[in-house]
Computed example of a mutant assay.
Amino acid sequence: MSKKNTAATIATIIVAVLAIATTLFLLYQTSQQQIQENQYNYVPSDEVNEEMNMNAVTLIKNNCEVFRIYLQYGLPHQAEPYNNVPEDGYYTVKSENYKTFSDIETLVNSTFVEKEAKRILTNINGDDVAVYAEETDDDGNKGIGLDAKMVDENGRFKAIAYDYTWSNAKFTLHPKSNTECDITVELNSAEETSSADTSSGSESGNTKKITANMLKVNGQWRLQKLVY
């Protein structure tokens, strides 16, 4: 075979290989798109759909509240005399909505699956620090203690950096079965919300979408993870 024919044959093989690779890539893209499109093909009955909607509203609201008290703002606490660090390692929480630690436990346990609820209550930041704990005063009255490790040198709760607001959040349900449903939540930028009137319904484009997964466990709907 001449060098010219050999070169032509090699070129033909290369073109054929590239064509096959391109075809496989396009098929992969198409299959992935179909998977995404077919992911939420399940259509629940009207009764199940209503049940999912009602529970989603409550669970997303509770998720926001747990995020607020555990990561964003914390619960108000009482300062020590002369701004000292409390001897027992806990600041006393002063809250109208949460009087005892069991109030917090009820909120968390009624919102999340058991494993996630335990993580939030005992180790939400991954540092083995339980943000809140049960506290008992000298008279035997139960209350809530805020771990001193969660308070900075200025007496403020150590909040995470967060640039979005749950005010006017929009959410969409994506049922996957009678016992599972994804919830897409669209959050607005905190900066834009504070500087513009969001009641007009205008879209700024600077939003964040997060997905929560809702499961029906032992007849009760729960979120699989804390989302924010």
Results as ranks from 00 to 15, higher is better:
K142H: 06
I160R: 14
G155F: 05
G126K: 14
S189K: 07
V43S: 15
A212T: 08
T58P: 00
K158A: 07
Q224Y: 06
F112K: 04
T207Q: 12
I120W: 02
S204N: 15
V15S: 12
Y82W: 10
N168S: 08
D88G: 06
K170M: 11
S204M: 12
D137I: 02
S177N: 08
E134L: 07
P81C: 09
D128C: 01
G74C: 03
A21L: 12
T122N: 15
I20S: 11
K61Y: 04
Y162G: 02
F112C: 01
S110K: 05
D46I: 07
N123D: 11
N41E: 09
Q224M: 01
Q220S: 11
D138Q: 10
T179G: 02
H174A: 06
Q36R: 15
G89E: 11
Q78H: 09
I104G: 07
D147S: 05
A196H: 15
C64Y: 03
N5P: 05
S199P: 10
G89Y: 09
L146R: 00
E47P: 08
T179L: 01
K158L: 09
N84M: 04
G155T: 00
N84P: 05
A161I: 04
S95E: 03
P86V: 04
V17K: 09
Q34D: 04
N83D: 13
L107T: 03
V17T: 14
V108T: 06
I210H: 07
A56E: 01
A159E: 10
Q224E: 08
A117M: 01
K118C: 04
A7I: 06
G89H: 11
T30R: 12
A130T: 00
N206V: 14
W221P: 02
Q33D: 05
K61N: 11
I20Y: 09
F112Q: 06
A79Q: 08
D152I: 00
Y42L: 07
G143T: 00
A8E: 07
E47I: 08
H174T: 02
K61D: 10
A117C: 00
M150E: 08
E80R: 01
S204P: 13
T207S: 15
N109L: 05
E47Q: 15
L26M: 09
L27S: 14
L26R: 13
A117S: 08
T9I: 15
P175V: 03
Q39L: 04
A161S: 14
D46Q: 12
F171H: 12
E135I: 07
W166M: 04
N5G: 04
T165H: 11
D137P: 10
A79Y: 03
K149A: 13
S167E: 11
N38K: 13
N154K: 13
N213Y: 10
G205S: 14
A130V: 02
F171Q: 11
A56Q: 00
T193A: 13
V108K: 13
E135Y: 11
A8I: 01
E192T: 14
K3A: 06
